[in-house]
Amino acid sequence: MNCSDTDPLWIDWLYGELPAEERAALEAHRAECSRCRAAGRRLLATRGALDELAASTPRSLVRPGPTRVRPRRRTAAGIAAVLLALGGWSLAAWLWQRPDDALRKVARPQATAPREPSAAALADLTERLQSLEEMNQLLAGEIERLDESQARRDTDWHRALAGQSSDLSKRLDRIDRNLQALFQAELETTQ
């Protein structure tokens, strides 16, 4: 056995899955080859360190508690995407409920047999509806917040513009007065 022959054997050797015959051959080679002896020691040491870490890793690395959906701040693009999705969903629901048969055929796939929804499906739908309502409230709040923020920005902007405009008017007045004074002085000099 030479060094290149050992390549496919190391992992099975490391995890004790190498058949006895191949293990003996590898050990014989390691006894003669310092490079492979070092490679084996590195692998064993790294595995030992990982075993140590795995042994200390808690069953769960996150705080215990029920899983939950947390509201997040949405960006304008995110809100637009959600609104589009809600719009699509509403349109589908509207199409579904229209008495127009032609539209219903378009919206609903050909059902094989009418089925009564099970209690679990109803509970699932109710939960989804509640989630949608919560999402709706969140979105409404977020849009209101954005509107307020936009209104504040608009007010600030107008105030700043008005201030700048007033400054400019004053400066123009001063320039005008200076020009008049210069003109007057020029006239007196020439007379």
């Binding site: 390549d7 496919p8 190391w10 992992i11 099975d12 490391l14 084996g40 020691r41 590195r42 692998l43 064993l44 040491a45 790294t46 595995r47 030992g48 360190a49 990982l50």
Partner: peptide
Amino acid sequence: KSRLRVALEKLHHELSRQGFAPQELEE
């Protein structure tokens, strides 16, 4: 298996770079 071998070698390299020399185990 070959990916794991490379991964373990790289992990050992990283550990050495950070000043950790994992204790070599008794064989």
